[in-house]
Amino acid sequence: MPVLHTVNKSPFEKNALDSCLSHALDGSTLLLIEDGVYAAMRASSIEPRIRRALKRLRIHVLENDCRARGISEDALIEGVGSVDDAGFVDLVVEHDNVQAWL
């Protein structure tokens, strides 16, 4: 599998998400962790970007980081998957390389 990209920044604070989305090749995977998970919430100004990206990337959030921030599963943009810590490990193992957009 191609690259697993991780983004750990709120899209309202840093350009990590935008930079990631503009570099990630079609068919790669994005995992939102830490403050990065805010990008996956519905109804924000970021939603159209995530929806566009979902057409060419798999996008997941780290469940525990969402729960910590009061983001329930039904608040997530449709099509965004949710993984637990073991799922994070599986994603790392499944992909050839992990690129952290810090």
Binding site: H23, A24, L25, N97, V98, Q99, W101, L102
Partner: peptide, 17 residues
């Protein structure tokens, strides 16, 4: 260009950030 950077990242075994 940006596209090429994306391809280069994809071609690596390891990327340090």
């Amino acid at each position: 260009d940006r596209k090429e950077i994306g391809r280069l990242i994809d071609a690596q075994d390891v990327v340090f950030n």
